[in-house]
Design a binder for these strands. Structure first.
Lengths: 135, 135
DNA sequence: GTATTTTTGCAATAGTGTTGCAAGTTTAAA
DNA sequence: TTTAAACTTGCAACACTATTGCAAAAATAC
């Protein structure tokens, strides 16, 4: 599984990439750099984690989630991942209780009518509230 | 104008608050902390700018805009500001060309149907593309 | 005008992210 | 299977972003 994804994206198979990709595959929600650093412990250098995450974003294996605090959240979305690249037009949900961020793969970002003069390219939507686990 | 807003929110009137609030009033788009520091130059300490922005957010004079890089963007939205507090349910637009962020006060964030178990509280939407100035 | 409350500036600290380079690992090809 | 080329990693250094405590200064209230 992990190997397939790396090879499909023409990436060298290294311990760091395998481990970090596994974290995303076995983790429901989104992850921040700090989460990954905690979970991998002393295994890799901070810089390696940063570079691995950037590589994955460039290849479209994971994608960024917009937030209002100054944190960068990354998530792998199962459906798109298989296809090798992301459409990433789904809504993200951040739980006010457990703070977990979830990709709602089945909820598509709705179209909005913009004022005259504005041309849309991409739209992101983040909903906060109470998630299924915390209800 | 500036004084009205500060008094309405029960804030002491200081040089820093007046100057920063003016920046928002005379600036179309959103501002990051770094923008404000550049525009105020040596007038105030960085810490004062941080604290002023936090105070304004708490009082609802300005609000945060979600981004995918790790930057915090602040914007004052004319309509709500007059009322003393924000509804902040409008769409934000980030121009791919000039990178300016605009509040589309007249475009409301649409409702979406969430999966069973999820209860929404607040929704944010950010659209990227080409703005009116850059078209 | 003075006392009280609030805000500011400074110094120190912590967190976040990037770059250059040498050493190490992976890949591909003989 | 060995070797050479390409790529990735770790380290050190650096830059930027943000927060806290405390004393001095300013604003408000009386």
């Amino acid at each position: 599984m992990v190997l397939d994804i790396l090879k499909k994206n023409q990436l060298s198979v290294t311990e760091g990439r395998k481990k970090i990709l596994e974290l995303f595959l076995h983790n429901e929600g989104a992850l921040a750099h700090a989460d990954i650093e905690k979970k991998t412990g002393e295994m890799f250098d901070r810089v390696t984690v940063y570079r691995t995450l950037n590589t994955f974003v460039e290849k479209g294996i994971i994608h960024l989630i917009p937030t209002t605090d100054n944190s960068i959240l990354y998530a792998l979305c199962k459906d798109n991942c298989e296809a090798g690249h992301h459409h990433d037009n789904h809504v993200h949900f951040i739980c006010d209780v457990c703070n977990k961020t979830t990709c709602l793969d089945e909820v598509t970002v709705p179209e909005v009518k913009l004022p005259i003069g504005f041309t849309p390219n991409h739209a992101e939507m983040v909903v906060t509230g109470v998630c299924d686990d915390c209800k």
